[in-house]
Design a protein around this nucleic acid. Structure first.
Lengths: 216, 216
DNA sequence: CAACACGTACGTATTAATACGTACGTTTTT
DNA sequence: AAAAACGTACGTATTAATACGTACGTGTTG
């Protein structure tokens, strides 16, 4: 590692900034170049440093420009700067939004100092870092979603195939040509599928099939 | 911790079982009570122990009864037994299936001994454990999926409303009654939506709307 | 003020989907 | 061997969707 990791601290509470600073300064490879109390100030400071900052440790819940918006702006204006999200809450929605906005990592405030340091170093290398609590939340949410799916209504292979084509916008006629069948057969399949799934028509059939994970 | 963690090792390769054993036995809190070379044998051994096993460390890729099926059976027959998945591959599909089957944790074989021990202890406490490589795969996949969504095709509020009703299986006529409109207007909306989204018909419209996250 | 998007709505004609019954050979299950 | 599920297919009639053009009041934006 050549030189220290130039770090910018952003949080609206001074006490928290002080806490983070004291944790990060224990590591000799980390250099906190500045602090900001909100997103706007952070952007100004980054500009003042000509973008020569490696990592921004950023609180999500801030007054004014939100952490998510700030992250989005930073990652667009300065793609080289890595953002490490920091929060008290491990809500699913927040995490996903931060990731979408361009943050590389996400650490909980009550996660301990070592997680913070590890996270900072990891994102500095351009890799993703999610603290354990965060990943558990995410993965559990993900698995739950998956579980709520996987209701295949006892559709046969052929029937799933038909649903797939229907969802791609093909008519019975077009499907029949594609898989060399009578369009009447495709029609029968469609009817049977609708019956099996207990839906009213094709539109609902497609909707439910996708939501329940019948289609990949 | 009262007594050692009674552990059962399941893997079809003896060499790997030996390797895992040597790693786990370094920890004084872990006691490997038995080994099995496949799912069937594992179930027999568990029965012979009257279910008095704390954690089963289970390879996913096994001949005969698969790791996923074995996990499912174990977690149904012996809900108290915790399963820690073990694999060489970090494919998304495998991980999700293991979670669905009831595994509490998931560790990669090339993840190092400390991960294995940490994972075992964590699932023993009834908590989830996913090794870093695994979570990165999962979370990245998840974030990507989220990102691939959020294309709203510039649909208006009214149009999104129509799509929602259509996906619920309502006809133009039914929608028109529901929101007090002429069915001809609903029809026009439907036509405009299809045009805006660049799809061929209602079925594809619904499919794409759901996949792209237009509907919640 | 003109242009544009939005939501509303109709006319006319064509195409596609739906409803319901029926049928039959093949494979799978009991 | 009998029963059930699967995939195949047709007849007939009705309902819904699609295509394409047109129109008009309201609000917004250039």
């Amino acid at each position: 590692m050549k030189g220290k990791i130039r770090t910018l601290l952003v949080d609206d509470h001074k006490i928290i900034r002080d806490g983070i600073r004291s944790i990060l300064e224990m590591d000799e490879n980390i250099n906190i170049v500045d602090e900001a109390k909100d997103g706007t100030e952070a952007l100004n400071i980054i500009a003042r440093h000509n973008g020569k900052i490696d990592v921004v440790v950023l609180d999500i819940n801030m007054p004014g420009l939100s952490g998510i918006d700030t992250t989005e702006i930073i990652s667009k204006l300065y793609p080289k700067i890595k953002v490490l999200g920091l929060t008290m809450h491990k809500q699913h929605a927040y995490i996903v939004k931060m990731m979408e906005a361009g943050a590389l990592g996400y650490v909980l405030k009550d996660g301990g100092g070592d997680q913070l340091i590890e996270g900072l170093k990891t994102v500095f290398q351009g890799k993703n870092y999610y603290s354990t609590e965060v990943t558990n939340t995410l993965v559990n949410g993900f698995v739950k979603k998956q579980q709520s799916k996987n209701e295949d209504f006892g559709l046969t292979k052929r029937e799933v195939e038909i649903v797939k084509y229907v969802s791609e916008g093909l008519s019975n006629e077009e499907i029949s040509k594609k898989i060399e069948l009578s369009s009447r057969t495709v029609e029968t399949h469609r009817r049977n599928i609708i019956k099996k799934m207990g839906v009213k028509n094709t539109a609902q059939m497609v909707a439910r099939a996708i939501k329940k994970g019948v289609l990949k």
